[in-house]
Design a protein around this nucleic acid. Sequence first.
DNA 1: CAAATCCCGACAAATATAGTCAAGAAGGCA
DNA 2: TGCCTTCTTGACTATATTTGTCGGGATTTG
Lengths: 149, 149
Amino acid sequence: MLIPSKKGQYALRAIYELSRRKDEGPIKISTIADVQVIPHRFLEVILNQFKGSGIVEAKRGVYGGYSLTRSPSQITVGDVLRYLQRDRDATACLACVSQKTCPFFDNCGFLKLWQKVKAAAFDIYDQTTMQDLLDSNETDIALKQAPVE
Amino acid sequence: MLIPSKKGQYALRAIYELSRRKDEGPIKISTIADVQVIPHRFLEVILNQFKGSGIVEAKRGVYGGYSLTRSPSQITVGDVLRYLQRDRDATACLACVSQKTCPFFDNCGFLKLWQKVKAAAFDIYDQTTMQDLLDSNETDIALKQAPVE
DNA sequence: CAAATCCCGACAAATATAGTCAAGAAGGCA
DNA sequence: TGCCTTCTTGACTATATTTGTCGGGATTTG
């Protein structure tokens, strides 16, 4: 998974939405789900997994919802993706499909290659903050409204 | 898929094996499967998909088997992975999970990010030839036999 | 012709991903 | 207090994808 699964993309979109509205106080799951077109129940599961991540926090009750615990410029795509994967990465060998079933163990000629690629991908993910995404999206919209001909 | 699935890894290992033995004439599927620990029948399917790729060619009959059509230094990991994916990439949007279901179409803030990551990965894959893998593996083995202390 | 080998399409099994549900806990407010 | 709203939790189901298998057919060589 270097281009995230739907779940990963939902997570990012949800956190992106929270970033967009960081000054509106807690945002309800149902609001995020509506705006970002994510199945409500599934988003519950997803956001719940971010408990303890230090990225979001939840509040129950009438004025409850989710909000960010740090500013969008301090949350990277890498943070989000890594957190979503934390248990899997521990066991699974990123190089071969699985260290147990790889017949070459530490002598697999492809291992270094996979590591290089994963590093390259996470270089990019780690350098991209939620704030960057907000900014780049605004630029896009501006360009569309006043296109250069 | 930027770190290849098992199938992709099988394909690479098979072509790697053909590279190692490029001077031995056609190699039987069953030989490749044995050496590289790949399910025989599955490998049949996989190699069959490379028909028309310009990477390998098959010969039937008693002294039949597979062989490369170009030298290992002219086959990149990118060639192999791309060929394996050719039909999928045509329809599926590499950016969102699928263009049809992505609610943001061409306005998805993440699209450029996925493209960047995919490009970074294929930069590496396209620069890595089968010959490179052969060479690097030999170096590894040499280092193990005479480790620097 | 027979034996070896690839070829082909359909099928089956395993795994991963995506999504749902029901009941509970907690916060806010009258 | 009691009620409404919202997150919490864990189990459950459904769907898609990946990984394989099988039987029989086509080719080549001797």
